[in-house]
């Protein structure tokens, strides 16, 4: 049984038929309750999207904690809510049952810190070499800004992340890869963060690297 609480328009709390209303993170929410016999394709697609986005963000949790710390959020949201929302809306393609992650559209950080010119990545032996042009004349840049990097392995859903890498002026950072067996696909991203961790840039997709030691 739902109860009506005092308020300008009243607030419904409790169960009415197969709907239940309750307070969650300061908001009154309503949802269906009970056993669901079947889901529509759209619902299954949404569930699959949730699953994929969760798997995508799990290995980069520490990175997005820094990447979305200062990004404006709705009340009650945290860094993960925002990263989840942005990536679920923008980085998924296809319809159920072929929902996939479009790694070119994945975002791992968001902010107003300027990015350097010409960021690149290349495979050199057992290392990923990231490079950029510092561009010190751009307004908002600081020579002590540090690079943040992601090397994402979509096949195993693992990621190597750097949250406080080389300073902007050094114009390069190298990640030593583990000694993989066989072929590996690596998706790469770059972003920058200020020394005081209060400003961050958008993350930029640098491209796909194929590692093959055969």
């Amino acid at each position: 049984m739902a109860t009506l609480r005092p308020g300008s328009l009243g607030t419904l709390i409790g169960r009415v038929g197969n709907m239940v209303f309750y307070e969650l993170n300061g908001k009154i929410v309503g949802r269906t309750i009970g056993v669901v016999d079947s889901y529509s394709d759209a619902q299954l697609g949404n569930q699959m999207g949730f699953g994929l986005t969760t798997l995508l963000l799990n290995p980069v949790n520490q990175f997005i904690r820094a990447g979305f710390k200062t990004t404006p959020k709705e009340p009650g949201w945290n860094f993960h809510s925002l990263a989840f929302s942005l990536n679920k809306k923008n980085a998924l393609t296809g319809k159920y049952p072929n929902v996939e992650i479009d790694f070119t559209k994945v975002i791992f950080s968001m902010g107003g810190l300027p990015l350097p010119k010409n960021p690149q990545v290349k495979l050199a032996g057992n290392c990923l070499e990231f490079s950029w042009e510092a561009d010190p004349e751009t307004k908002g840049n600081d020579e002590r800004d540090q690079v943040m990097l992601v090397a994402y392995f979509p096949e195993t859903l693992q990621a190597m992340t750097v949250q406080s890498g080389s300073p902007r002026t050094s114009e390069k950072h190298t990640i030593l890869l583990p000694s993989f067996k066989g072929k590996k696909v690596i998706e790469t991203y770059i972003a920058f963060i200020s020394e005081d961790r209060e400003r961050v840039s958008n993350s930029v997709y640098l491209g796909q690297i194929i590692w093959d030691n055969q």
């Binding site: 290995p59 195993t156 693992q158 583990p178 000694s179 993989f180």
Partner: peptide
């Protein structure tokens, strides 16, 4: 789980 997996 979410902990770091084994690598290589």
């Amino acid at each position: 789980g979410n902990r770091e997996m084994a690598w290589s």
